[in-house]
Simulated scan of single mutants.
Amino acid sequence: MFKRIIYFTFFLSLWLGGIAFRTVLIWAFSTTLITYGVLPLVYHFCPALQRHLVFLTFVNYPRSIDFSKPEKEGLPGTRNFYLDTEENVKVGVWHILPESLLSSMPVETTDRDAWFENSLSDHRPVILYLHGNTASRAVAHRIELYNVLRKMDYHVVAFDYRGYADSTPIPPNETGVVHDAKVVYRYVKERIGSSPFIVWGHSLGTGSPTLTTDTSNTAVGAVLEQDTDDGCHPLAFFSKKLMTAEQKYSTFDMELLAVYKAVRHFHHMLEGRRFVVQTDHQPLVHAFTKSVDAWSAWQQRTCQQ
């Protein structure tokens, strides 16, 4: 409805500005026909265009990345290697060590690869990161996420699907990128032993994490979990003591504050993806189905932020 109002207002302003009414009608009809008729038909009957718009491999930034030297991108203690996913197809992979292992990493290149592979079975959690469309595993916001996870003492394995970055430059499709992910998954799974294993994705490679929040009279807390076939696996925990003024909030406002603080704390992991918020406060669930006009100014600001 809002878009229609803007659309109508724009053409009305053209007419009031002195442009002939017939010309305005022709422009309005033409743009409507192109937007809602021609473009959808072109998209529907052009698989190549669909593939380009879904995978966006042509959006490649930053350029001139040396993937063999991830330390130049702010990732010391990272191994770069390649896996053959099928004949004539390889994908570039990074294994990013937990922060606690950086000091024990060997310098010699002969033992380095074997040491990295053996470290995956050291009982620290291992995260296989599946990035979304556009760019590569070396884009700044993904590197920021790797560093957050490694500070939590996680191994991180990140790779680029076919058609991206330094992987084989062939047009990707759904079957191909899923196959690439399965090959990297099996590679990691065969080497981690009994270490916890979590598949973590954004956008194109997304999964749906769950953020469970709760509050007491003096503090708020949350746990971020990943849903798998074996149930929910905890990824990280959060708690924060409430200020004196916050302890006087109503139950509804305290539960809302718990969600707000938890989302802000885990924004590196939640930004740009769908996730589920669980709360034991039923009024908070119902509140999100009502008009925000019924909320106080503080409640509206908290939700918007």
Score class of each variant (00 low, 15 high):
Val24Phe: 05
Leu49Thr: 07
His202Gly: 05
Gln299Tyr: 09
Lys90His: 12
His141Gly: 02
Glu246Asn: 04
Trp27Lys: 10
Pro70Ala: 12
Thr279Ala: 10
Met152Asn: 01
Leu16Ala: 03
Ser239Asn: 14
Gly17Lys: 14
Ser203Arg: 04
Val259Met: 15
Arg273Gly: 02
Leu83Phe: 11
Ser216Val: 08
Phe67Asp: 04
Phe288Trp: 15
His141Asn: 04
Val183Asn: 07
Pro70Arg: 09
Leu256Thr: 03
Glu174Met: 03
Tyr43Asn: 10
Ala245Met: 11
Lys90Gln: 14
His131Glu: 05
His265Thr: 11
Thr213Glu: 00
Gln50Val: 00
Tyr82Lys: 12
Gln305Phe: 05
Ala294Gln: 14
Phe55Asp: 00
Val24Ala: 01
Ile143Lys: 13
Leu120Tyr: 07
Glu255Met: 11
Arg51His: 04
Arg79Val: 01
Pro125Ala: 08
Val157Met: 08
Leu149Cys: 09
Ala287His: 13
Gly176Trp: 07
Val148Asn: 07
Gln299Leu: 07
Tyr260Ser: 08
Leu145Trp: 00
Ile143Cys: 11
Ala181Ser: 07
Thr289Asn: 13
Val223Gly: 02
Val24Asn: 06
Leu14Asp: 05
Trp94Glu: 02
Thr215Phe: 06
Tyr249Val: 03
Leu101Asp: 07
Ser296Gln: 13
Thr23Ile: 07
Phe288Arg: 15
Leu128Glu: 02
Arg264Asn: 02
Tyr36Cys: 08
Leu120Ser: 08
Asn88Ser: 12
Thr9His: 07
Ser291Gln: 14
Leu75His: 05
Val157Asn: 04
